[in-house]
């Protein structure tokens, strides 16, 4: 097993209120990890510690360690460089109010890349990987906010891919989308895991079962259990996992 991310005894507090308690886990490379759990179970907090987006919240304190390829995220990593390696897709499609093209190259431009050809190639590649190229190739100059919700979300994936990350975090990426758009995103994810490590936070247990290689169940800030997806969904060890999956709460 090839470990990409190693989490040890991770706890997060916001202004003293505990959001995540003593989480320890390993995330495999080139696999999809599904993270499930009811609202306020710490899933999103967990996700955002993996690229240090929680740093932006006032009053946050993180203890424990997270290793990416053996490097301590909170000690040996520059957060800016880290976020280029660990991309994130948010729950709502959040294109910037600019053209499709400019959205995709946003991260590259911030790295100082100006060459038109390089940018154009990167845009095509990223859009192809996000299954958006055919729809977008003649609409690159259009305002991104004019696209449909599903297209916007795939544009956000393309935008993240353009930066060439190693890990991509998905924070309930389909919660605002219709089933057809959801299917397209899931299809893209299954393809993407060949080259990237994916972490998918979702409150849709069926989606977790469909795409996840492994699944982790969070409850009230704690990691209850984590295993191969089929095991979690057929024979969970913990009663709480069983109750959640079978719909007794959540």
């Amino acid at each position: 097993m090839d470990v990409k991310i190693q989490v040890q005894d991770l706890s997060v507090r916001f202004s003293g209120v505990s959001a995540l308690k003593n989480v320890t886990m390993e995330i495999e490379a080139n696999k999809i990890l599904s993270v499930i759990g009811p609202a306020n179970s710490g899933k999103t907090t967990f996700l955002k510690t993996l690229n240090r987006l929680n740093d932006l919240v006032a009053g946050v304190s993180v203890s424990g360690t997270v290793f990416l390829d053996g490097k301590d995220l909170y000690k040996d990593c520059d957060p800016v460089l880290l976020r280029r390696k660990v991309g994130i897709i948010f729950a709502l499609p959040l294109p910037l109010p600019a053209s499709v093209f400019e959205n995709v190259v946003y991260g590259l431009r911030r790295q100082g890349i100006r060459d038109k050809k390089t940018l154009a190639t990167a845009v095509e590649k990223a859009l192809r990987d996000a299954y958006l190229w055919d729809e977008m190739k003649d609409r690159l100059g259009e305002l991104a906010l004019k696209l449909s919700g599903g297209q916007q979300q795939r544009l956000c994936i393309a935008r993240t891919l353009a930066v060439n990350p190693e890990v991509i975090l998905f924070d309930e990426p389909c919660s605002a989308l219709d089933p057809l758009s959801t299917a397209k995103i899931e299809e893209a994810m299954l393809k993407l895991k060949e080259r990237y490590t994916l972490v998918l936070v979702t409150n849709n247990t069926k989606q977790a079962a469909r795409v996840g290689d492994r699944t982790a169940f969070f409850l009230m800030g704690e990691l209850v259990e984590m295993d191969v997806t089929s095991r979690i969904f057929t024979a969970p060890l913990d009663k709480r996992t069983d109750d959640y999956i079978s719909g007794k709460f959540g």
């Binding site: 987006l53 946003y106 991260g107």
Partner: peptide
């Protein structure tokens, strides 16, 4: 707020985020 979050998540620095997003 989300503009800032998106920009930072794409690997922009704080200053770049203010300037471009």
């Amino acid at each position: 707020k989300s503009f800032r979050e998106v920009s930072l998540s794409l690997g922009a620095t704080r200053l770049q985020t203010i300037k471009h997003a």
